[in-house]
Design a protein around this nucleic acid. Structure first.
Lengths: 217, 217
DNA sequence: TACACATTGTTAATAAATTCTCAAATATAA
DNA sequence: TTATATTTGAGAATTTATTAACAATGTGTA
């Protein structure tokens, strides 16, 4: 955990490399240089090389990078060469959107269960998985040793639910509730705060339209 | 646009400040010091002061910050003191989740239209708004002068759709498709790449479990 | 096989972001 | 009213991230 720490800035860029490499792979491209990748991705070649070097460097002088090899290595780094079990807590539209997104399955995220507190949803199915009452979550997570919980519930319920999940031995929470969770730091949390994202967009619209409403410095 | 540029790192933190200030406001807290806010938010007091100072500084020595005032100022900076019109392109679960999220409305994002290419959805309603055929999008966006388009469609369709939107005079795109859009830089784009976020989570799980699979340096 | 060329990995330089420090300003209590 | 305690805003110091430079190493060709 505490060895050669790699900054989250680097980690954040890996999925994007992975996406572009996947595209290249599909196109049948065998090799690529950092410069070529730089042109496609609009980041500096230097950054690409620096990023890969955090993990030892996967290229070869005079040749570049082998697309397939690099793709596989990144998938190992990201841990998507293994399967991860996942439950969705909150089977509303957002929960269903995520559950139904088949690409996640392709990346090894296996959707095992869905829970909600709305009785109307009990027994309805999302991709062969039955929606269960949320009280059954604890037993289910323990029994099947679920790794990841996707929290798509209102923020008021998110905090107590996170605590319950931690008690059941969950390893990670993908949090869509608009609240910061306070969990032990052996539990991984990744927040998706959609409203934050939308506000950023709003800022940039505003900024572009009224460039001169900045402080009098 | 090109005056006292504020870094996107700062902008990214504003919505979180805004969220915490909203909570404080609701609790009836009138004033707060950067140190108190630091304790609550788990960021350094110095960063809080530095961030606010980018916009001129809203506090007073010996007193701290007035919660209501600061809240209002941040909402102005973020441009959420004004209304923004918005259409959703792709009325699947994700599109519906976003359209249905009433908090956005509260923040001034007014949901005006929804479009899809699935005839089964035409005429169905999402919060009083009828789902229309996607061919009608262009006229609609032009006619009602829509500012923001939310792209919740598959990546193959996202790129041509973005081009169409730009032609219709859209100002900003909130992009949920797993692809990078290439639009003129007067168009604001905010990406929400969910699979990237999930991969980051996967990395951190992996990292925590196998701390020693780092390169031999 | 030998030589020119390409391209990485790595170190150094630069830029950006964060944290520290403290004088100046204000609030509050005596 | 004055003295003391707070707390900001701003500049300096530090840390982190990004970009540039180039020697080392391999590729591909004649």
């Amino acid at each position: 955990m505490a060895d050669k720490d790699i900054s989250q800035a680097v980690i954040s860029r890996l999925p994007r490399y992975f996406r572009y490499l996947g595209d290249l792979k599909e196109k049948g491209v065998e090799r690529i240089s950092s410069q070529e990748l730089s042109d496609i991705m609009k980041v500096t070649a230097s950054q690409i090389r620096q990023d890969f070097n955090n993990f030892g460097g996967f290229g070869q002088q005079g040749y570049g990078y082998n697309v397939n090899y690099l793709y596989d290595e990144i998938s190992k780094i990201l841990g998507i060469d293994k399967q991860h079990s996942l439950v969705i807590i909150g089977a509303g539209h957002l929960g269903q959107a995520i559950a139904g997104y088949t690409n996640f399955t392709r990346r090894g995220f296996v959707f095992k269960g869905a829970f909600d507190c709305n009785p109307d949803l009990y027994g309805t199915k999302i991709r062969d998985v039955e929606v269960r009452p949320v009280d059954e979550m604890e037993d289910f997570v323990r029994k099947y040793n679920i790794e990841i919980a996707v929290l798509t519930i209102p923020k008021e319920q998110a905090v107590p639910m996170a605590h319950k999940l931690v008690e059941c031995g969950i390893k990670a929470i993908w949090n869509f509730a608009h609240v910061d969770l306070d969990v032990p730091n052996n539990i991984q949390v990744e927040n998706v705060h959609l409203s934050d994202s939308l506000m950023k967009l709003s800022y940039n619209i505003n900024r572009y339209e009224n460039p001169n409403n900045s402080p009098s410095k």
